[in-house]
Design a protein around this nucleic acid. Structure first.
Lengths: 213, 213
DNA sequence: GTTAGCATGTAAGGAGTTACATGATTTT
DNA sequence: AAAATCATGTAACTCCTTACATGCTAAC
């Protein structure tokens, strides 16, 4: 699953961009965010954090919590983004191209869309939509070729998969429209109206993937 | 993604159960079947086939195609299931438990549902549904805790995710009803009525049951 | 005082992708 | 005759999970 590492990095940068926190919480937020399927393990997160530290994308602050520090408190570590980290975050967020709209990557980028401007958002949303449409075409053309005796259950699975992706496309279309018709996107505090009513669905577990994560 | 290996094996056994074929075609069918996300590479498939050969789950037949075989034709290899392979397939298909309803595994099992009986099907479908419902609960409870200032896009992503899983649950409920109300499942050739349709005879006491499109 | 959840890590190992390497057959 | 697609493989490498190991802190 090659390209996951970058994804985690981006997510970490994005979360720390909002507020400093420590590894444990980072993991929780991450799992909530992209955790519809597999869950990120500590064995994956902590090494990534160390790596990012070495690359100076983030910094750590050790806290000893209680004032009268006895001796050997194992310190809790709070991470913050550095300036370099912020720049890297911005660089990654303004990337347009396949890496931005592949399954895992897309979700993370979307979650932090507030940190980019509309142009980028539109391009990513459209790229993603095109990606899914290609997928649909490919599958549908292949299906018509193989159309020999299709097993009932296998066919139902396919049907459901197609339906899910189609719904996802509709969702994206709704979002694209909302962006274009300038849904107020500035941080006018609360009362955020639903971005758009469009129905939706990611191909969740069923068609073989929870593309999201 | 640890548990994928078994999944591939099951899929291979299932496909070869239907008809012998060679690796290349196996890969195509596999990708069509569970290929909504990542695609299975040769570097993954061929080693698996070798391993299954060693385990005597499948057998190979070398074909030289053209009658007047010159000399050094690289042979094409057609794979078939052995008896041991068939038994293994049946064993795996009648497993009920977590391994049967986790994301990837579920899809494969579902695709080959025709090879099991209704009891198993029902248990797997119900297990899967429960799994997803737990997921929803977990996410929703966590969301209510974190309900501080949620970013608009992040919130929309969550909303969409929840909606997708809810739809999946409805889909499963429909299938469960269909199984219970005995949708004719034997191979009465074509004119197979959509699995899904199944209007329940009695006004289903279960609220969840209604969904049926 | 003990369980449950917070918190941080490491080592070993498996699974699968990428990139490479080769060749046959069919279509244009 | 070239291009596309069918077809089979291997080696290196990355990523990530599993399982282990440790210890603090709050609640019951």
């Amino acid at each position: 699953m090659a390209r996951r590492a970058e994804t985690i990095e981006l997510a970490v940068l994005g979360l720390l961009h909002e507020a400093p926190m420590h590894g444990y919480e980072l993991r929780k937020r991450l799992n909530l965010m992209l955790g519809w399927g597999r869950v990120l393990s500590y064995g994956s997160l902590y090494p990534t954090l160390k790596k990012m530290l070495r690359a100076s994308l983030i910094e750590e602050t050790l806290s000893t919590k209680t004032p009268g520090t006895p001796v050997s408190k194992r310190p809790r570590i709070t991470y913050q983004v550095t300036e370099a980290g912020t720049r890297e975050f911005e660089r990654l967020m303004s990337e347009v191209g396949p890496t931005a709209w592949e399954d895992d990557n897309f979700d993370i980028r979307f979650a932090f869309f507030s940190s980019t401007d509309m142009e980028i958002r539109l391009r990513v949303l459209e790229g993603r939509r095109t990606r899914l449409q290609e997928r649909l075409e490919r599958v549908q053309s292949q299906l018509s070729l193989t159309q020999k005796e299709v097993d009932r259950y296998a066919a139902e699975l396919q049907r459901h998969g197609v339906e899910s992706v189609e719904r996802e496309v509709e969702w994206l279309s709704g979002l694209i429209n909302a962006e274009r018709n300038g849904v107020p996107q500035q941080t006018s505090n609360e009362t955020a109206p639903a971005i758009h009513g469009a129905p939706s669905t990611k191909p969740p577990a069923t068609p073989a993937a929870e593309q999201a994560k």
